[in-house]
């Protein structure tokens, strides 16, 4: 969809950024300008505790307790992946899954391949800092010229919701979140984004970085054939290109339990309003 010609060593300014980008990997050049008619989509996924997990910590509240915890693809990332697969089926192209995580995230990556992604990259590092994760994604994106970089609106562990915006800024690309609807028409994306109390309809040229949420697509469940083929799909493991972090978790804490619930008989429901006024003082 996007026409690009670049030579090794070529330097250019990306739109919307003062950053200079140098092309250091040759893309195949043909006699005629290369027109890439298919979508190249990168989907970034997180491996996070299942939404029903009871969170606990160990080592004097400095480590998340993984014992007995089921890890899943981030629910928002799952929506992004599902839409990417639909777009690929409709328009042709490839879907690459990217995860920044240690070896124990591979079951989540294999599941994404089973759902229909073509290949996967794992950056071998613990993703504790949003800027660090964004730099890894941006480094890979710079080498591969994706038309779309999709991910969940936020990870459900740290809930930062920043990685898409940082990646967009690092690449000089527009970023939009949270995206509830995405359609591609030529090199233009039609997008619905949720805002407070409603939604807005947006239009932007590719390439784009998008943070996704429901109802952009229905979650997909892998079928047996998908699970079988996923075993042999390429999963490349690379080391992080930079180590910079801007935040560092010192310790964790669980919320204080709520006091006992005060039950009010249904036939005296009106007393609730008095209690909210005089005791809880919230109305």
């Amino acid at each position: 969809m996007v026409i690009r010609r670049c030579e090794p060593g070529q330097t250019f300014r990306t739109p919307g950024s003062h950053r200079l980008i140098t092309i250091d990997h040759a893309r195949p050049t043909l006699q005629q300008p290369q027109i890439d008619n298919t979508m190249k989509i990168l989907v970034c996924v997180t491996s996070v505790p299942d939404t029903t997990t009871k969170i606990t910590f160990t080592d004097n509240n400095t480590k998340f307790n993984k014992a007995g915890v089921q890890f899943i693809t981030g629910p928002y990332d799952d929506y992004a992946l599902a839409r990417a697969i639909e777009l690929k089926e409709k328009l042709g192209g490839t879907v690459t899954v990217l995860n920044v995580g240690e070896a124990d995230t591979e079951p989540v990556i294999r599941k994404c391949l089973a759902i229909g992604a073509d290949d996967a990259i794992r950056v071998n590092a613990d993703p504790t800092d949003a800027f660090f994760v964004a730099e890894q994604i941006a480094a890979i994106a710079k080498e591969n010229s994706y038309d779309l970089i999709l991910m969940g609106r936020e990870s459900i562990d740290y809930n930062g919701g920043q990685v898409h915006g940082i990646v967009g800024e690092l690449l000089g690309m527009p970023s939009i979140s949270p995206v509830m609807q995405l359609d591609i028409n030529g090199d233009t994306a039609q997008i619905t984004r949720e805002i407070e109390g409603g939604k807005e309809s947006l239009e932007a040229r590719l390439p784009l970085v998008l943070g996704c949420q429901e109802p952009i697509a229905e979650w997909k469940i892998p079928n047996m054939r998908g699970i079988m083929t996923a075993r042999t799909k390429p999963l490349k493991v690379i080391e992080p290109t930079s180590k910079d972090t801007l935040t560092n978790v010192a310790s964790y804490e669980l919320p204080a339990p709520r006091g006992n619930v005060k039950m009010i008989p249904a036939d005296q429901a009106e007393t609730l309003i008095q209690l909210l006024r005089t005791e809880a003082k919230v109305i």
């Binding site: 915006g165 979140s177 801007l246």
Partner: peptide, 23 residues
């Protein structure tokens, strides 16, 4: 936090290499 402020802040992290704590 808001739909606008979140979008703005993430770009700001990239621009300023600022450390962001959400929530």
């Amino acid at each position: 936090k808001s739909s606008l402020a979140d979008a703005m802040a993430a770009r700001l992290v990239g621009k300023l290499r600022a450390g962001l704590a959400a929530n």
